[in-house]
């Protein structure tokens, strides 16, 4: 009998115990992940702090020592590079490449995906298979023939040429993503519109495009970051361009003998600002795009 009575007084304290146990159990995980999180921040913070230190300081002591004495930090590097480094022009070139390449991919892909989902035509499935195949074709595969082609068309060494290349290699993934999304749009909606006499363009414009906005946002962010951060295409087609984009600008600085770390770190950080802003502002859409296109 006492055996049964015994648990009764303990009952109220059981939740407290469970709570304590849970805290004790989760402490190592929390500590570990805090450590990992800090570890993950170190490299970026290192670059950021370095970009605010005079070059002489870089050779004298570690950037982490500067954190303790914020007074030694200066915006001098940024002022210098904005005046002399051609960074302003590079930034403009990067924007001139990235914005059209993003808009065009979004437009062309949403059109193409419409044809794949809402129009019936022979070979539709095969085109889709081809797109899936094209998604992983390396950029390198087309460099030489396209360079030759651009030579004939007068596009070599021009911004439109680079834009076109990015559009082309962005499309397979973009159409894949949009098709995936459009497939979830109820067909009844379009059916009703068709009965009301809407043509394909009107249905695309009035129904599918507005409904597809979340996916378009994911796609746009993905493409934006991809093009902004590209080095290979820009280097291959715009290597000799007077105002090369940011990545090429920094690459050239790094290759020049004796460019010091204050210039490199500052330029690198400038190139990262907009991608980071885009990332933090639209992280949700970015994650969606990543998940949808885990195959790219």
């Amino acid at each position: 009998m006492t055996a049964i009575a015994a648990p009764a007084p303990e009952a109220p304290s059981a939740p407290r115990w469970a709570h304590l146990r849970r805290i004790l159990k989760s402490t190592p995980v929390n500590v570990l992940l805090v450590a990992v999180g800090l570890l993950w921040l170190v490299p970026t913070v290192g670059l950021l702090v370095t970009s605010f230190r005079p070059a002489a300081d870089y050779f004298a002591s570690g950037w982490w020592q500067a954190i303790a004495h914020p007074a030694v930090l200066t915006v001098e590097n940024y002022r210098n590079i904005l005046h002399t480094g051609g960074i302003g022009d590079a930034l403009i070139t990067t924007v001139l490449i990235t914005v059209p390449a993003t808009l065009l991919v979004v437009l062309i892909a949403s059109l193409g995906a419409y044809a794949l989902v809402f129009l019936r035509w022979p070979g539709r499935d095969w085109v889709f298979v081809l797109l899936v195949a094209l998604m992983v074709v390396p950029l390198q595969m087309a460099l030489i023939p396209v360079a030759t082609l651009y030579g004939h068309l007068g596009l070599y060494g021009t911004i439109p040429g680079v834009v076109l290349y990015h559009v082309a290699f962005g499309l397979p993934f973009a159409i894949f993503l949009m098709r995936n999304f459009y497939s979830g749009i109820p067909k009844d909606l379009l059916e009703a519109a068709r009965i009301d006499g809407a043509n394909e363009w009107m249905m695309f414009r009035r129904i599918v495009l507005p409904l597809g906005m979340p996916a378009l946002a994911s796609l746009a962010i993905f493409q934006f970051l991809w093009v902004w951060n590209d080095l290979l295409v820009a280097l291959s087609f715009l290597g000799a361009y007077p105002h090369p984009p940011l990545t090429v600008n920094i690459f050239n600085k790094l290759s020049e003998f004796g460019t010091s770390i204050d210039v490199i770190s500052t330029a690198s950080f400038i190139s990262m600002i907009i991608p980071l802003v885009v990332f933090f502002a639209f992280q949700r859409y970015f994650v969606r795009g990543v998940l949808a296109g885990a195959v790219k």
Binding site: T44, I250, M272, P275
Partner: peptide, 30 residues
């Protein structure tokens, strides 16, 4: 967010970032 953030940074800039991390001189490389 912290662990995912490097995805937004170009691979090239990542190279520069890690050059600083890997500096040979213990006074400079973390």
């Amino acid at each position: 967010t912290v662990v995912f953030m490097p995805m937004a940074i170009s691979l090239f800039a990542t190279g520069v970032i890690w050059r600083i991390v890997y500096e040979t001189d213990p006074h400079r490389g973390v």
